[in-house]
């Protein structure tokens, strides 16, 4: 078993755990956390694929590795915006649940 395969399979597990949390947990902040777990899994999967592309003196394919840096920074900015939305929802509504049957609200 190579390191790329091991981390690739671990990434699949992380994506699954993140997806579970994203659906199962009604608190928006916990959904953001779960989404970031999932994101970490997606990045790790891409990193494992980059590792498989090692060659020409590089330990991994530098093109996906560079795109991963972009991905991590963009994930942070999206998380910051999501957190700001949750805090604003909490400030305005005094409540942060998305699990409310009546009245139907889809934001």
């Amino acid at each position: 078993m190579t390191d790329a395969l091991l981390y690739g399979l671990a990434a699949c597990g992380l994506i699954g755990l993140g997806l579970y949390g994203l659906i199962a947990n009604p608190a928006p902040l916990r959904k953001i956390l779960a989404f970031n777990i999932m994101g970490g899994g997606v990045f790790l999967l891409a990193g494992a694929i980059a590792r498989r592309g090692a060659g020409a003196g590089f330990g991994g394919d530098p093109v996906p590795q560079a795109l991963l840096i972009t991905g991590i920074v963009v994930a942070f900015s999206a998380t910051a915006l999501a957190v700001a939305l949750v805090l604003r929802l909490n400030a305005v509504a005094g409540d942060t649940t998305l699990a409310e049957p009546p009245p139907a609200n889809d934001d």
Partner: peptide
């Protein structure tokens, strides 16, 4: 680091762990 992505490791430590952690 194990996947030979030192630049990514630096970014992950600084942004993925540190800055996101402070935010959360």
């Amino acid at each position: 680091l194990q996947l030979h992505g030192i630049d990514i490791a630096l970014t992950e430590a600084a942004i993925g762990g540190g800055l996101t952690g402070a935010l959360l």
